[in-house]
């Protein structure tokens, strides 16, 4: 049996390492600005990060299958514009219908990506780079470049994400619920396990009777549906819909996954990693201004952390080669 040192174990459980880093950051910022670590403020930071958390969880599934979905932010903007315009046209529609509609629209856009990857066999980075522009373009076509402002939206449309339950916003509760659902999905369903398998070793997956392309398709559908839901939540939380909503946000989503230890090479990662990666980025964004660091540093710091995360991951993922010689000790 191998004995593993505590440090080694910590590094092998990247989630713990990242969790420790987050606590360290909270302690550091808290000692400089105690109000930052108050419950109310932390709840606010979480609320601000909720959408990133959800998108990162969905993106994680895509990355696990050795794909990437760069179209999530454009999908979010398009779906957000759709439901905002719908709300203007049919103000009496209930918020629940809006939620279902946003999930449906997002799902369709995601499924389109997935079909191109699965049946046409185009690399996902190319497919989603294309649909990233296309979906963003649709927002313009749909809105003629006009904004949909707060006063045009109905109170019910705007109220849902902000409503609070136990001092925590519904938006945050949705993120928590989605995280739990994703956890159960990845750990306790056949499809969830298969997603790890097809990304970890596609060849072995075929030998085990798992369809690689189909599982990639499924992850694109999930990523699209979550992006659609976030489209509504984003537009109603910020009370405005326009072409540039969440512009370049996909990069933060992918960054959250990478920081959370999800391997771009596929097959390695956990929901907790994605969630912690997103929270880490959310904390940097909210904490730096508090301790008087310019927002430009924020970009530099998150960039450095991403590079560091990739280095740490690539070291721990080194795999041994084929061994031809008989081992001496056997």
């Amino acid at each position: 049996m191998k004995t593993t040192s505590i440090i080694g174990k910590l590094i092998s459980h990247r989630e713990w390492l990242l969790g420790g880093l987050i606590i360290l950051m909270l302690v550091g910022v808290g000692s400089a600005a105690p109000f930052f670590v108050g419950t109310a403020n932390l709840a606010e930071v979480f609320d601000d990060t909720a959408i990133l958390i959800m998108l990162a969880c969905a993106q994680m599934l895509v990355i696990l299958t050795r794909c990437i979905d760069l179209s999530v932010a454009s999908n979010l903007a398009f779906t957000g514009m759709c439901v905002a315009l719908f709300n203007v046209a049919y103000p009496e529609t209930s918020a629940l219908v809006t939620v279902v509609m946003s999930i449906g629209i997002g799902l369709m856009l995601g499924a389109f990506n997935g079909l191109l990857v699965w049946l046409v066999g185009i690399p996902s980075i190319v497919v989603t780079l294309g649909t990233m522009s296309a979906y963003r373009g649709f927002v313009f076509l749909l809105s003629d470049g006009e904004w949909v402002n707060a006063h045009e939206m109905t109170p019910q449309f705007l109220a849902l994400p902000r409503a609070a339950f136990l001092d925590v916003t519904v938006l945050s509760w949705i993120a928590i619920a989605l995280t739990l659902v994703m956890f159960v999905f990845t750990r306790f369903t056949k499809t969830g396990l298969s997603i790890f398998a097809v990304g970890g070793n596609p060849k072995a997956a075929v030998y085990s009777g798992l369809d690689v392309g189909k599982h990639q398709f499924i992850t694109f559908c999930i990523s699209g549906a979550v992006a659609g839901l976030c489209g509504y939540l984003w537009v109603s939380r910020y009370a405005v819909a326009y072409v540039e909503v969440a512009l370049a946000f996909e990069l933060q989503v992918v960054a959250a996954c990478v920081i959370g230890g999800i391997s771009i090479a596929g097959g390695i990662g956990s929901i907790w990693g994605a969630v912690l990666g997103a929270i880490f980025l959310g904390l940097i964004k909210n904490a730096l201004p508090v301790i008087g660091i310019s927002p430009f540093w924020q970009l530099a710091i998150s960039g450095l952390v991403i590079v560091l995360a990739v280095i740490v991951n690539s070291r721990s993922e080194k795999r041994g080669g084929r061994r031809i010689l008989r081992e001496a000790h056997q």
Binding site: V184, R187, F188, T189, K190, L193, S194, F196, A197, G200, N201, K203, A204, Y207, S208, G209, L210, G267, I268, R319
Partner: peptide, 29 residues
Amino acid sequence: EAVMFDELSVTQNIFINNQNRNRFGLLDW
């Protein structure tokens, strides 16, 4: 050739496409 999954556990490898489910329809680890 080892057509298996290095990152999954021994149990997950053994039952990769042949799982047991509990009464909630979830995988019975």
